[in-house]
Measured scan of single mutants.
Amino acid sequence: TEYKLVVVGAGGVGKSALTIQLIQNHFVDEYDPTIEDSYRKQVVIDGETCLLDILDTAGQEEYSAMRDQYMRTGEGFLCVFAINNTKSFEDIHQYREQIKRVKDSDDVPMVLVGNKCDLAARTVESRQAQDLARSYGIPYIETSAKTRQGVEDAFYTLVREIRQH
């Protein structure tokens, strides 16, 4: 089974770092803004072998026109913010609204991801993020692309959301 996953969120929150940590098991430290990259990885989730087709997208506003296209083809979405960047957390709402509009559905598989949880300088409390996820009816997972904490959990949870859909 193949799953088309799309990673969305503001610029600099760590979308590529999360994806590369999942696929290649290493942490990319330097920031190089993405336009669009796709990665494929075969994994076993709950005993089922599946192929993850992951689209890593641009957070930069100037590429926002490309969003409709990949939102149409994606089956599930990782909505990523950084726990030390309140603005990126506030941006999640717009991504969710755009996904709902493009998919013409209120019920699209999504996982809210709070990345950079290895950093002490948190400005978005776990509780705020949990409340937001609960209001959307989606899971919330904290990750660190640096330490790998929660990385597999985030992507695998999204696959489970798609399966249950």
Rank of each mutant, 00 (worst) to 15 (best):
D104R: 11
V159F: 07
S16M: 00
I35Q: 02
Q94A: 14
E97V: 05
N115F: 00
A121Q: 11
V108E: 03
A129W: 11
H26Y: 12
R127G: 08
V6Q: 05
S126P: 07
Q128W: 10
L22N: 15
I138H: 05
T86R: 13
R40Y: 04
A17I: 03
L18M: 14
F81Y: 11
R160V: 05
K4F: 04
T49M: 09
E125Q: 10
D153E: 12
F155C: 08
A58Y: 02
Q60N: 15
D46N: 11
A120N: 11
K100L: 13
V102F: 13
T86G: 10
E152Y: 13
L112T: 01
L112Y: 05
C117T: 08
E97Q: 14
T49R: 09
K100F: 07
M66A: 14
I54S: 03
V44E: 07
K15N: 01
T157S: 09
H93Q: 15
C79P: 01
V28Y: 10
Y136E: 09
Q94F: 15
D56C: 00
D118Q: 03
S16L: 00
R72D: 11
C79F: 15
I20W: 08
G11Q: 12
V108G: 03
R96A: 12
K41A: 14
V159K: 06
D107P: 10
V80T: 05
T73K: 07
M71H: 10
H26F: 15
A10Y: 05
F27V: 03
A120C: 05
T143R: 01
V7I: 13
M66G: 13
L158W: 05
V28M: 09
G12F: 12
V43H: 14
T57E: 01
V124F: 12
I23C: 06
F81R: 01
A145Y: 00
R122F: 11
Y3T: 13
G47A: 07
I162R: 05
F155Q: 00
K4Y: 04
S144F: 03
T49I: 06
I35D: 01
T57W: 03
S64D: 13
V8Q: 03
L52N: 03
H165K: 14
T57S: 11
A145F: 02
Q164W: 05
F155L: 09
E97K: 12
R134A: 10
I99H: 02
E97D: 06
K15C: 03
D46G: 11
F81V: 09
L78H: 00
E152R: 08
V43A: 10
Q69L: 07
S135N: 10
E90T: 10
V111K: 01
D37P: 00
I92P: 02
E142Q: 07
K146T: 14
R160Q: 14
C117G: 12
Q130A: 09
G114Y: 02
D46H: 11
N115V: 12
G14A: 00
R134D: 08
Y156K: 15
A65Y: 10
P33D: 03
L5H: 00
A17Q: 13
V44Q: 09
G74D: 03
I99A: 04
T57I: 12
Y39E: 00
Q21K: 13
E125C: 07
G11A: 13
I54L: 09
S126A: 10
Q130E: 11
E61Q: 14
M71S: 07
S135T: 06
L132T: 05
L55V: 08
S88D: 09
L158T: 02
L22Q: 14
V102A: 11
Q21G: 13
G9L: 00
D107R: 12
L158D: 00
H93D: 13
T143P: 04
Y31M: 07
A133H: 03
K116C: 15
E30I: 05
Q94L: 13
I141M: 05
R160A: 11
V151T: 11
G14V: 00
M66Y: 13
V111I: 12
G14E: 00
R148N: 12
S144T: 14
D131Y: 07
P139M: 07
R72G: 13
R40E: 02
L52D: 02
R163L: 11
E36F: 03
E62M: 15
G11W: 12
L78Q: 01
E161D: 09
G150W: 09
V159H: 04
V102Q: 11
V124A: 11
R40N: 04
D29N: 12
I20H: 00
S144Y: 06
D106Y: 14
A133P: 02
F155Y: 08
H93K: 14
G76P: 01
V113A: 04
R163I: 11
Q128P: 05
E90Q: 12
K103T: 13
V43D: 10
Y3G: 02
K87M: 12
L132M: 11
A129N: 07
Q60W: 15
L158Y: 00
D106T: 12
L119Y: 13
R72I: 08
G12E: 15
I20A: 04
I162A: 05
G47W: 04
N25W: 07
E30R: 02
E97R: 10
V6W: 06
S64W: 09
L112Q: 03
K103D: 03
N84P: 08
F89P: 03
G47Q: 10
Q69D: 14
L52F: 12
R134Q: 10
A82E: 14
Y136W: 09
V28L: 07
D56N: 01
K146M: 13
T86I: 12
L119G: 15
Q164D: 08
Q149N: 09
E48L: 05
Y31V: 02
V124Y: 12
T157M: 10
K4A: 09
F155P: 01
E152D: 10
Y3Q: 06
Q69S: 12
S38A: 04
G14T: 00
Y140F: 07
L132R: 07
I45M: 07
G150R: 05
S88F: 08
Q130G: 07
G59Y: 03
E142S: 04
R127L: 10
R160C: 10
G74A: 15
R163A: 08
R72T: 09
K146D: 15
Q60C: 15
A129I: 13
A65S: 13
A133D: 02
A17V: 08
K87R: 12
V159M: 15
K87Y: 05
T86D: 12
L78W: 03
R160F: 05
Q69M: 10
Y63C: 13
L158C: 04
S135W: 10
H93C: 14
Y31N: 02
I35N: 04
M71G: 06
V8W: 09
G11M: 11
R122W: 08
R67C: 14
E161A: 13
V44R: 10
K87A: 12
E152I: 12
L158M: 06
G12Q: 13
D32Y: 01
D131C: 04
E61M: 15
L78T: 01
E90Y: 07
V43W: 11
A120V: 08
E30A: 04
V108L: 08
Y140R: 01
R163C: 10
S88E: 06
Q21S: 14
L132P: 03
Y3A: 06
V80M: 13
I92M: 09
C117W: 05
L119T: 15
E2W: 02
D68M: 07
S135P: 03
G137H: 03
H165A: 11
D37R: 00
N85H: 10
I83P: 13
K4V: 04
G9H: 01
R122P: 12
L132Y: 09
S38R: 01
D91S: 14
T86Y: 09
S16R: 00
V113S: 02
T34L: 00
I92A: 06
E36N: 02
D91C: 13
Q42N: 06
Q164Y: 03
H165C: 12
A10S: 11
A133M: 04
S88T: 10
I141V: 11
V108A: 07
I99M: 05
P139F: 05
L5F: 12
N25F: 04
R122C: 13
S38N: 03
R163D: 10
Q94E: 13
S126M: 08
